[in-house]
């Protein structure tokens, strides 16, 4: 199937700004699904609120556009009732880790078989460029005109500590890696998290004088390095990309099926 067969063409062109990284995530994710050859009817995409969450409107799968931060909670419900379906949960950085921070860590802890894609553009774009828990120290935002004093989360470390069994990071510049990691995350049995560093030229880029979309992509290339590269040893400020965690632990739905079986014994 061509990737156009996976989208709802009637809603295009999409509502994202010119050069928005979320479109690149959509592009990469569709290619991952195309390579895996998944049936559209076997995929459920659940999203919350924000620019990133509008992604669910554009794909021709089963889609749920739910409430702010609670996409993982809805996805947990769907997965528990229909464990044979593939659940993909794209979220923004604020949606996943501020409003939905608790859902995020507990979904990771349970190791339920969902694929969480965190589209991290380090800002709340839809509401006008307020800083998020991923903006980081020293960043300018509408609500931090004299620069932000909050430290940021590290999504990879947070997901790892919370118990996610697949954790990866990439950027919208590294499109082949992006598609490849999403593919592996979907295949992984357990809670998988893919952080995609994305660009918001309209707010983050403009407030922080990072130039246009292409300039922001170049920055992404320059500020990251593959895990374990030599460059990281001499330039410790570089952000690592790749797969950080990949392990097999009991999956929540399978465990629950086991509980049902035990409870029904003798009936």
């Amino acid at each position: 199937m061509a990737i156009k067969d996976y989208i709802r063409e009637r809603f295009f062109p999409h509502m994202w700004c010119p050069g928005c990284g979320h479109g690149i995530v959509l592009n990469g994710m569709l290619r991952a699904i195309e390579v895996l050859g998944l049936n559209k009817n076997d995929i459920v995409m659940v999203s919350g609120i924000g620019c990133s969450s509008r992604i669910s409107g554009y794909v021709d799968f089963h889609t749920l556009h739910t409430i702010h931060g609670r996409a993982l909670a809805f996805a947990t419900g769907v997965k528990m009732s229909r464990p044979e379906l593939n659940l993909i949960v794209p979220m923004g950085d604020g949606d996943a880790l501020a409003i939905g921070g608790n859902h995020f860590i507990h979904a990771a802890r349970r190791n339920i078989d969902l694929t969480a894609i965190v589209m991290n553009n380090r800002i709340y774009g839809m509401t006008g460029g307020q800083y998020s828990p991923l903006s980081g120290y020293g960043v300018s935002a509408t609500t931090a005109p004299y620069s932000n004093i909050d430290q940021s989360f590290d999504i990879v470390e947070l997901a790892r500590a919370a118990g996610a069994t697949f954790v990866a990071r990439t950027t919208t510049y590294h499109v082949q890696e992006l598609s490849n990691l999403i593919q592996q995350a979907i295949v992984h049995k357990g809670f998988s998290v893919v952080e995609v560093m994305s660009q918001c030229p309209t707010y983050f880029g403009r407030k922080n004088k990072e130039g246009g979309p292409a300039d922001m992509l170049k920055r992404m290339k320059d500020m990251t390095t593959p895990i374990g590269s030599k460059a990281k040893q001499s330039h410790t400020e570089l952000i690592e990309r790749g797969i950080f965690v990949q392990k097999i632990l009991p999956e929540y739905c399978s465990e629950y099926a086991g509980i049902i079986e035990r409870a029904m014994k003798g009936h």
Partner: peptide, 11 residues
Amino acid sequence: KLCELRCPDLA
């Protein structure tokens, strides 16, 4: 195909 892969608008 880098243009096709990086296009945010699938254009």
